[in-house]
């Protein structure tokens, strides 16, 4: 669920192209609403309400009765539906392996590559302090 929610919609759409046509019912049609985000006072203290974010949720039911759920930040109904479908397929033995390999693994690799890019670019801005030598000798 984590990878399906965090991934860019265009990436999910392209990797999940083959499973998108799997027959399913909508247990709950994609619906956009809000979740209140919270922080902690002094980063580690008691919680406080920070502000809301848009979230789209969807639930599907496969022909064999397996249910899949998705909550994805933003307002992309297609993303929530495809993520819910992948979630349902991931619970099956064969379909689970296929979706893990075809969809989840490449998405995870993309996320990881993006994190490395951000982190190495930030690391390049790390200050390397040195002390100017001064004195008479």
């Amino acid at each position: 669920m984590r990878v399906l929610s965090l991934s860019d919609w265009r990436d999910l759409e392209s990797y999940a192209k083959e499973v998108a046509g799997t027959p399913h019912d909508l247990l709950r049609a994609p619906e956009t609403g809000l979740v209140m985000l919270r922080g902690r006072m002094g980063a580690t203290g008691a919680a406080f309400n920070l502000g809301e974010a848009t979230v789209t949720r969807c639930a599907v039911r496969l022909v064999d009765g397996t249910e899949g759920h998705a909550y994805v930040m933003g307002r992309n109904a297609a993303h929530a539906r495809l993520a819910a479908l992948c979630d349902a397929l991931l619970q099956g033995k064969d379909s689970g392996t296929a979706v893990s390999e075809m969809v989840i693994a490449p998405l995870e690799a993309k996320l990881q590559a993006a994190h490395v890019e951000t982190s190495t670019k930030a690391a390049a801005t790390k200050v390397d302090f040195f002390t100017m030598v001064r004195g008479d000798d």
């Binding site: 019912d25 709950r28 049609a29 619906e31 639930a59 039911r61």
Partner: peptide, 10 residues
């Protein structure tokens, strides 16, 4: 199994 809710929620 979960029963379906409103079809046309709105």
């Amino acid at each position: 199994m979960t029963e379906r809710g409103f079809l046309d929620v709105a």
